[in-house]
Amino acid sequence: MTITHILFLVLSVVAVLSAAIVVLNSNPVRNVLLLIVCFFSIAGHYVLLNAQFLAAVHVIVYAGAIMVLFLFVIMLLNLNKESEPHKPAWEKIIAVIAGGIFFVTLVGALKGTDVIVRNASGTSLGDSGIPSPEIGLVESLGKVLFSDFLVPFELSSILFLGAMVGAVMLGKKNIK
């Protein structure tokens, strides 16, 4: 067992546990803090997978910006345990069944993945089966974005412009 394996196991256990507590716990502030823990452990996974830039962006955007937004909303809405709406039992049962089926589907999907792992060595990963260490750096990402993924990159600017226009339109007052 190498150090990578140990790190992977620790990060996975932390990520799954914290995510489970977020769903099961009903204290909003604690949930948000645990969600941050979950995001950090996923960022750790990114680093293990050689995606350093993605890990940094993940921490900045999710654990930083979005979680602060969550905390603000919780603070402004003054959510607490009593004000949480109560869901009827049949809704909970259906949710459990649907979630269970989804879980089974995902576990079942792992069947046959050993073929991918076997095929992986010697193709995109190089002869040794170890990915190139530069693959997750900003430089290589930028090169891909401005060559192979140029069209989606440019079109996403239209998407963001549309989202911004929409936000401004909904936010501004109607001038009579």
Partner: peptide
């Protein structure tokens, strides 16, 4: 012809639409 374009197309179609659905603000 690429999954990223499928995703972008669906988002570009939908996000303005969410706003349009709520454009009658009162």
């Amino acid at each position: 012809n690429n999954m990223t374009m499928l995703f972008l197309g669906i988002e570009m179609l939908s996000i303005p639409l969410y706003v349009m659905a709520g454009s009658k603000k009162d």
